[in-house]
Design a protein around this nucleic acid. Structure first.
Lengths: 201, 201
DNA sequence: GTCTATAAGTTGATAGAC
DNA sequence: GTCTATCAACTTATAGAC
């Protein structure tokens, strides 16, 4: 299994992705050069093109995998179809925060770099974002139908909850005042207040 | 009052600012070149430097004026010191949305371009942002003290309300389904729900 | 105040040696 | 798989003519 001198293909690939993620999150896609990424990985710039066809693909892959992971997490986490809307809402808040809080770099990129995607890459990501939003709105509408929730406008409340949850990623630190569990509980309470649901079960 | 050929100083200055604002909002600070701004203004690149010492100042001025305007708007809008916390909260939501909704470009820049500020420029803007956040938290704490609000954690609720309000700027369009007044009312209601206040007065 | 020309450096991406 | 060398195009900012 002798390899060519200097071959590290089992390691360099992931390192390229990780370095791109870190640098894009810190400085922004447009402000980061391929040479900076190469330096972070520890190779020369030409070597990067063994792992990505171009800079744009690096960004798209990061965002696409982040959103796929989020939708997959929700699919697993949402539980049975016949549960109550209240349980669905609590699960959504729980799932959202558990997925986002340990992924601050990917979250930052996902929200900040949409405009640096090419048109077709943007459409792809936007569809995924929309389907996530729709998952929450479906819960709200269900709760309105069953009478569990008292909501004037499902669209506005959906966006308000999403906004409230997104904001957490801008300040949360793992070593902060609140544990993750305590934080989730507070946001579950606030989500319930926004939909006019009594308390937690 | 004869002017030098090609002199348009009374017009070019504002146009530089406006063009920078539009382009930074659309493509991001790092992705926009001074040549692009010049082209949008309708001058050659050298002429821009009659109006700004450098590109960074263009960004800083835009953000600084946006935040100054916001704080000034709140100073006017907040009303008498001895009013109720509930009135204060309603005024805050009203003021926030009325200021932000017609300024989508400046809002976008203010939230997206913080990391492209130099360290000292960032500190300056961050202080202003913090004082705005503090204004809301003061209202929440007052309501907790008077018993108007039932809130477990003033910091978290402050951030949740800010997050909910910020999110509006990502989708609001003046020609949308809801009038500005109707929108404000819905967000006032949701803010009241988050602080555990009864209804609007 | 605006222009053109220029400085000095960076960019994304490719070709070919090893 | 990685390197070096290279490309053409682009970057911010300045100098000096008009």
């Amino acid at each position: 299994m002798a390899r060519t001198t200097g071959s590290h293909s089992q390691k360099t690939g992931p390192r390229v992705t990780q370095s791109a993620q870190r640098l894009f999150a810190q400085y922004g896609y447009a402000a980061v050069s391929m040479r900076q990424i190469a330096a972070e990985v520890g190779v020369q710039v030409g070597a990067l093109y063994n792992y990505t066809p171009d800079k744009q693909s690096l960004l798209f892959t990061l965002m696409q995998e982040h959103m796929s992971g989020l939708l997959a997490a929700w699919k697993i986490h949402q539980g049975p179809e016949n549960s109550t809307a209240l349980r669905g809402l609590l699960a959504f808040v729980d799932c959202h925060l558990r997925y986002h809080l340990p992924r601050s770099e990917a979250v930052f990129i996902a929200y900040m770099e949409l405009r640096n995607l090419t048109a077709e890459n943007f459409d792809h990501i936007e569809k995924m974002r929309k389907s996530y939003e729709d998952a929450l709105e479906a819960i709200i509408k269900k709760g309105m139908a069953t009478g569990e929730f008292k909501v004037a406008d499902s669209k506005i409340v959906t966006l308000a909850i999403i906004g409230m949850l997104k904001e957490v990623s801008t300040w949360y630190r793992p070593d902060g005042r609140l544990t993750e569990a305590a934080l989730i509980e507070r946001y579950q309470t606030m989500a319930c207040q926004l939909v006019g649901a009594g308390a937690e079960p």
